[in-house]
């Protein structure tokens, strides 16, 4: 299985290289190359996760090693889903790089696997984990799109067009892609939280327990709810929306990793 993880990380790295070269040289074959490597990597990544699942009957998010593998898988998968509808080709560089970083990092950590307990076997838990990971991947893409938006807007406002202007798509496409990412991410996060509550109720007999992870998830949810609300009511769009997508993702990263490392709580065991 380690060999397949190495192959996957290699594919993701090659894909990043293809997409990044595409950003520079704008040659269609480079983009195609990036896409093929990413798709193959995604396939291998899925096989690894499927293998782990078949072996243990649990979603492999029991230590940092497994969590990173699933994170990389979620980013690649969500990117493909969005690429189908929104053709922001240069975003591939960001998504592939992110996936590559996750999977390559997973090669270097092999933490203790969280105790196998019966409480880890529940359909609610499966739904909780999958929707949270996919939702976070969508927020990650929103952040990437936000960065591209800011680069493109600086080029247009600054009137010195330079490197980005010709290579990046229109502000409108970037803005609507970012919005779609956040809306999807928010929906998945909401599903993830609800299934999490139900699972907590079934296992611990309570919906909410003021665990640091829970508090920060709540903060993340409120933040994205505010972003979406602002957009729909007073038109928070463009640069403001892009900046918020970036800040939002920073909060997501903290909720995801920071809380586990710094504040402990009942999710801590999954990132050891």
């Amino acid at each position: 299985m380690d060999n397949l993880i190495t192959v996957t990380s290699l594919l993701y790295v090659l894909s990043s290289a293809g997409y990044i070269l595409y950003l520079f040289f704008q040659k269609e074959y480079l983009h195609r190359q990036g896409r093929v490597f990413l798709a193959t990597g995604f396939l291998c990544n899925s096989i690894i996760i499927g293998f782990y699942y078949a072996k243990t009957g649990q979603i492999p998010v029991r230590n940092l090693h497994e969590t990173l593998l699933v994170s990389g898988w979620a980013v690649a998968g969500v990117f493909f889903a969005f690429q189908y509808r929104f053709k922001v080709k240069v975003l591939g560089g960001y998504a592939a790089l992110l996936a590559a970083v996750c999977v390559v990092a997973s090669l270097f950590v092999s933490g203790k696997i969280a105790e196998t307990q019966t409480i880890f076997n529940s359909l609610w838990l499966v739904a909780h984990v999958i929707s949270i990971f996919l939702g976070h991947a969508a927020f990650a893409l929103a952040c990437g799109v936000g960065l591209l938006y800011i680069a493109q807007e600086n080029a247009i406002k600054g009137k010195k067009h330079g490197f980005f202007y010709k290579r990046l798509p229109s502000l409108d496409l970037l803005d609507s892609t970012g919005y779609a990412c956040i809306a999807t991410g928010f929906t998945l996060l909401t599903i993830g939280l609800i299934t999490g509550f139900i699972y907590a109720k079934s296992v611990w007999g309570r919906f909410w327990g003021w665990d640091p992870k829970e508090i920060w998830s709540g903060i993340t949810w409120l933040l994205y709810a505010a972003i979406l609300h602002g957009r729909l009511t007073v038109g928070w769009r463009g640069k403001k929306a892009a900046a918020m997508a970036i800040i939002g993702f920073a909060v997501v990263l903290f909720t995801f990793f920071g809380v586990n490392f710094l504040l402990k709580g009942h999710h801590g065991i999954f990132t050891r």
Binding site: Q152, I156, S170
Partner: peptide, 20 residues
């Protein structure tokens, strides 16, 4: 590639802002 007249340059910019 890319506009070299005032009016085309303006249209190109509009497309970069509005998409279509």
């Amino acid at each position: 590639d890319h506009a070299v007249s005032i009016s085309y340059a303006a249209i190109e910019l509009a497309k970069k802002i509005f998409g279509q």
